[in-house]
């Protein structure tokens, strides 16, 4: 399984995302670039230029028309996916940490950091109403005074957003009223990443408390826990196997004091039902900041603190492997 190395960023990768079909892979990093690649061969298709600060998040809608990015330059931007043209800039008071299109692709959400005296907000815009974009006036803005949002995804059918917080809480925010529908606290530390399964029924959280957990999207019922010895930065659910992949490692600020051998910068594969680790993939020489499965489940990608994105195609043995039961 020789990986394809994508060298298009100068700083650490912050998020990667496949489109629905999986032919494209979007990557954002702490430099100002937003890149899009052919996932099949790692060729770069193009960039979306305009941000002037670290880009924290990226999302693409279901029909790969629009791309949404959020950045530390205090803006959330909407792009035409095909042409790379910037369609809208939504200025904010603080860095944009998470962003996403809902199931229909009509509504976008993004959250801002608690920063420079500003509170953390979760904002909702309806793209069908051009006035909202023009006036930079969200139809719903939910303040989160307690603990800021550090990761967020849309739930199924666009009814709510599932947000992970700095204190380890997970909340469902209604996209209509902004109310908190369900609240759980299964993690003890910051939630670094939340990703949904391909059918959006399940979410996986990755936390600084060295564990990843599976939850039901609707009820937020806790289903499984996957434990490691290192902070988990990102986790993803395989679309075809009962597997999850987790990436993480020693925190960036502590890395200099540990050798790569001990930093445990490997992508780790766990069986979703047994909660047992069955494989690791080495390669990054820094912590892994994000992982993503290709929607066909035959490859996965990881983006690291080292600035590289690696696309890995699974060997045939991977699909035959079974834990004895």
């Amino acid at each position: 399984m020789k990986p394809i190395l994508l060298q298009g960023h100068e700083r650490s990768i912050t998020q990667i995302k496949y489109n629905r079909e999986g032919d494209l892979l979007f990557s954002v990093a702490k430099d100002q670039f937003v890149n899009v690649w052919y996932s099949v061969n790692g060729e770069r298709l193009g960039t979306y230029n305009g941000h002037t600060g670290a880009v924290w998040c990226v999302d693409v809608d279901w029909d790969t028309k629009h791309v949404l990015t959020g950045s530390a330059d205090n803006s959330c931007r909407l792009w035409d996916c095909e042409t790379g043209k910037q369609l809208a800039v939504l200025d904010t008071n603080s860095a944009v940490r998470t962003c996403g299109f809902d199931f229909s692709g009509n509504i976008i959400m993004f959250s801002t950091d608690k920063q420079m005296g500003y509170q953390c907000y979760l904002n909702f815009f309806d793209l069908r109403d051009p006035q909202q974009i023009e006036d930079n006036q969200s139809y719903l803005s939910v303040p989160c005074s307690e603990s800021k949002i550090t990761s967020a995804v849309w739930g199924p059918l666009g009814e709510f957003v599932i947000a992970g917080h700095e204190n380890g809480e997970i909340n469902q925010f209604s996209a209509k009223s902004g109310d908190i529908l369900t609240k759980v606290k299964e993690h003890t530390k910051q939630i670094n990443d939340i990703q949904t399964s391909v059918d959006l029924t399940t979410v996986i959280t990755a936390s600084k408390d060295c564990a990843a957990k599976l939850f039901d999207s609707t009820s937020l019922e806790h289903i499984k826990t996957f434990k490691t010895e290192r902070p988990v930065n990102s986790a993803a659910i395989s679309p075809i196997m009962d597997h999850v992949v987790m990436g993480g490692g020693q925190e960036a600020m502590e890395v200099t004091t540990t050798s790569t051998r001990i930093g445990k910068f490997e992508a780790r594969f766990f069986h979703a039902a047994y909660e047992e680790e069955f494989g690791r993939v080495k390669g990054h020489f820094g912590p892994i900041n994000c992982v993503a499965f290709h929607p066909d489940g035959k490859s996965y990608s990881s983006g690291g603190e080292d600035g590289y994105v690696r696309i890995h195609y699974f060997d045939p043995q991977y699909f035959d492997f079974e834990l004895e039961a």
């Binding site: 199924p156 059918d199 029924t201 399940t202 289903i223 039902a273 047994y274 039961a325």
Partner: peptide, 20 residues
């Protein structure tokens, strides 16, 4: 142990798929 964990997980997945 694995068998019972799998059983449980399957049950959950089935319920989720039904709703889906």
């Amino acid at each position: 142990k694995r068998r019972s964990m799998m059983e449980e997980y399957r049950k959950y997945r089935e319920a989720a798929m039904k709703m889906y």
